[in-house]
């Protein structure tokens, strides 16, 4: 074990104090050190988007950030959205529109789309497709994901 660094990270509102090797990827830290398994790892080179999380509110790839860099920052993962019995409106729309199959890419899509819908409460189909271009889904062909985002946007703007 080489040198480790103490870090203090707020994840989903909870403060975690840990010692990490500088090379530890944030994705591995969240999954294996904190047990937040909802963040998935699909490529570890920043293309697939399965590991997307919110870093100080910004959707980023957790496989392209070191855990040590999260020191003092605020992270949100899919676990911060809804629970199985109380889904977030976007999660509910994904379920209603059959926007997921194997579910492996889904948390990355959700974490990309939550801030997107905040910034684009009434998105066009083209805007939605561009927003999720950095998330690969092998199962759905994306059409039902687009429908789910439209559905969620309608629900969320009605709720306001």
């Amino acid at each position: 074990m080489s040198q480790t660094f103490p870090i203090s990270v707020t994840v989903n509102g909870k403060v975690y104090n840990r010692e990490v090797e500088p090379r530890l990827l944030l994705s591995d830290f969240l999954r294996h050190d904190l047990g937040l398994i909802g963040t998935h790892v699909g490529c570890e080179h920043g293309i697939c988007g399965a590991c997307t999380i919110l870093f100080d509110g910004e959707p980023v790839r957790s496989c392209l950030i070191f855990a040590v860099q999260a020191n003092g920052h605020e992270i949100r993962t899919v676990e911060s959205l809804g629970t199985p019995d109380h889904l977030h409106p976007l999660q509910q729309s994904f379920k209603d529109k059959h926007a997921l199959q194997c579910g492996f890419c889904t948390p990355g899509f959700l974490m990309t789309l939550v801030p997107f819908l905040e910034e684009h409460p009434n998105p066009s189909e083209d805007e939605i497709r561009e927003a999720i271009d950095g998330n690969i889904c092998r199962c759905t062909g994306y059409e039902k994901i687009v429908e789910a985002v439209e559905d969620a946007a309608a629900k969320l703007s009605q709720a306001k």
Binding site: G46, F55, P59, R61, T112, D133, G134
Partner: peptide, 9 residues
């Protein structure tokens, strides 16, 4: 330039 998540960082 790449995808939105890459441009954020």
């Amino acid at each position: 330039i790449a995808h939105p998540q890459i441009r954020r960082r």
